[in-house]
């Protein structure tokens, strides 16, 4: 694949899927009206069209598509980063417990305040806390070896899952429990401009950091000893990678709930397109993840009369696709 054309091509794909999402939805807005709204918005003219149409396009569909793109890109980027860090292609962004922690945080805020007002903050904070716990557990030895880090992640995830179950158990079954369950299945339905901002900032910082580090991530994937001999301050770069990947994932999870598979599969599609060098893999994964997520969200809100949770679609699409990939790449030295 020619790398020169791939990047602009993928960027077009993302732009195209965002554009498409403006035209698809249950609330009918005439095609030419959508174009008109966009035209007026871009040229800065005076809006004379009905307010409802405007807000559907500009306040609901556009922020939602942008948020979807950010979430997909952030999850794919941190997936690619963690896969390299743990030298394991089967790692997903939740490996250090960020999703389990965020799930607990969201449920805690729903149960405590009986509303979804503080879900973002709680999910974000507990997601980050979980990773800090995993990191502390992983530092049993002087250095953070991959195996102790993963163990830390497994332990912390298990504990937060148990705490989440406890909350589900005590939650009001008519109101709070369904809210928790739907949150856990993932959705972009809450996307508004303010959400786009609060989730977007950590995602952008995380992705920017991973982009800056992307070549060094290759070296980290050689293992601690060799990376150190190649002149890398392994402890520093490992912490930076975990920090940026966690910011990106926590930012994504706190606005969209738990959307699985994207962070696991998209980097593999990227590997098939551009190989394993994170210099190319990282941006390509981000673009692929963005386009994938926007398309999945279009399906989620238009495939049936009520909105489907994102997690269902990513897994139903992602599962078979992953099997296909495993079959196809079994000749590689995984």
């Amino acid at each position: 694949m020619n790398k020169k054309y791939l990047m602009p091509g993928l960027a077009l794909l993302v732009a195209g899927s965002i554009a498409l999402s403006l035209f698809v939805g249950r609330f009918f807005v005439p095609f030419e009206l959508i174009l008109q709204i966009l035209w007026v918005k871009i040229t800065g003219g005076v809006m004379t069209l009905p307010q409802t149409y405007q807000s559907v396009i500009l306040e609901i569909r556009l922020p939602r598509a942008l948020l979807g793109a950010l979430v997909g890109a952030a999850l794919a980027a941190s997936g690619a980063a963690f896969q390299s860090l743990f030298h394991n292609p089967l790692v997903s962004p939740g490996i250090l417990g960020v999703t389990a922690g965020a799930g607990f945080g969201a449920a805690l805020s729903i149960v405590t305040f009986n509303s979804t007002e503080y879900t973002y903050a709680f999910a974000f904070v507990f997601g980050i806390l979980a990773v800090i716990f995993s990191y502390v557990v992983g530092r049993i030895y002087d250095t953070t070896t991959s195996i102790t880090l993963v163990l830390g992640g497994v332990i912390v995830s298990a504990m937060f899952s148990a705490l989440l179950s406890t909350l589900k158990f005590i939650a009001d079954p008519y109101n709070q429990l369904p809210t928790i369950v739907f949150w856990l299945m993932g959705s972009l339905a809450a996307a508004r401009r303010d959400v786009l901002l609060s989730g977007g900032i950590p995602m952008m910082i995380g992705m920017f950091g991973l982009l800056l580090l992307r070549w060094r991530i290759n070296i980290l994937s050689m293992g601690d000893k060799e990376a150190g001999a190649l002149g890398l301050n392994v402890k520093l770069y490992k912490s930076l990678l975990i920090l940026f990947a966690t910011l990106a994932t926590a930012g994504a999870v706190c606005v969209s709930g738990i959307v699985g598979w994207v962070g696991l599969i998209i980097p593999h599609v990227g590997r098939m397109l551009v190989g394993n060098d994170n210099r190319f893999l990282m941006p390509v994964s981000m673009l692929l993840g963005a386009a994938f997520m926007v398309v999945v969200d279009i399906l989620a809100r238009s495939a049936s009369s009520s909105e489907l949770p994102l997690g269902i679609i990513t897994a139903l699409l992602g599962g078979p696709f992953f099997v296909y990939l495993l079959k196809k790449t079994k000749g590689r030295n995984w």
């Binding site: 292609p89 994937s221 050689m222 293992g223 002149g231 301050n233 590689r332 030295n333």
Partner: peptide, 22 residues
């Protein structure tokens, strides 16, 4: 680490291959 890496380079006995880099 950088200063050390400029003074000596290491060839490992058992390299653990992770991803199929070129």
């Amino acid at each position: 680490s950088v200063a050390i890496a400029k003074r000596l380079a290491y060839v490992p006995q058992d390299h653990h291959k992770s991803f199929p880099y070129t």
